[in-house]
Nucleic acid binder design. Sequence first.
DNA 1: TCTGGGGTCCTAGGACCC
DNA 2: TCTGGGGTCCTAGGACCC
Length: 412
Amino acid sequence: LSSTPAPAAAPRRILLLDCDMFFVQVAKLEDPEDVGRADLLIVGGRADGRGVVASASYAARAFGVRSAMPTSQALRLCPDARVVPVPREACGRIHRRIHEVLERFTPVVEAASIDEFYLDLSGTERLYGGETLEATARRIQQRVWEDTRIAVSIGGGTQRLIAKLAVERAKPGGVHIVPAGSEAAFVERLALAEIPGVGPVFAETLRRRGLRTVRDALVYDEKSLCLWLGEGRGRWLFRRIRGMDETPVAARSETKSISHERTFAEDIHSLDALQARLLPLAVDLGTELRKNGWRARTVTVYVRDRDFRDRQISRTLGDPVESDRAITRAALAQLQELWRRRGIGVRLIGLALSNLVSAGAQEQMRLEGIAPPQEDDRDRSLARAADRLRERFGKEALLAGRQLEKHPPPGE
DNA sequence: TCTGGGGTCCTAGGACCC
DNA sequence: TCTGGGGTCCTAGGACCC
């Protein structure tokens, strides 16, 4: 170890901007079914009742309504609430507009989710005339409101973890900055379950060790924590409860996987019916894959059984594929195998594509004659032709013919 | 009470190779 | 005759987040 101390780096200036009850705000702006003025508003139901709350207005929360709660339960707590579906398209659109606004303040913007953005303002002190981080945060908040009519809360500090914890203090609609040097003291007051990344299961593991608060855990050295929790989680927790988090803010890395899943109004008890529900997922995912210029090497089919058991089969193909034909063929085979292993009522089916590669960059280096290719040029051109037709005539134009016969589109 | 949909990351075991 | 390590890739399951 060197005896010369490294020069102290200037503390970073990181903000986390969090849109307050984002789905509710977007729903009110879009005003479907005239819910703009509804006080008691729940976003995220489903007509068949098998839905959960994505977001609820503060007035509805006063009745005990919470995110991820079954909508049916929420309506028992708050019978007068209006329920609307998540306005997906609008959420994406407004997300992108907020992102654009933030990029005017710093190029280092990371979208952490649909409604959260990290900003690294390190090195902008001179640009902003020595303005405090708090003052900058308030200007950003004001500008987002003016340009998008979305109210946001902002937390700030020298690290992502601190900004994330601080924003909880800022809600609703405020700004909370943790001064440099007081990170450890800020974290010390918390319960372990409040640390991002400590979920219900981990919290219970810690509780069984007698650890409930950060203070409880601070007395143990790294070795003990690693012994109890394993190397990875022990070290992770040791650093987190001291407010240590060097993770940089960076634009999100490329997408790793894409997936679609569908929960049925009623459990499905036949392989035929399951296959019919899998096909549109495959076509939608294939379309998305090709639109982004990707190919996928791994296909995963998963189900949630009637008894809430989740099962999956994933297969990695010899070559990455992009055609509906190849995706569908793999997916159907995997579904059959899932059904063979346990043919019980199914409430949800899902399909995921991962191991994504860019179709352009993919080297054509496979060894001929080892194994038949998963798809050929004809499959790929067919899929692309189908994409063009769907673009012109709508999604229903080309769903598998069998599909249309069994499930005719609603007449109008 | 009766549990959505979209993701990321981690772990552990087995296959396979050197 | 009894049993190496290390590395990578794949698979299944699960925790966690919004």
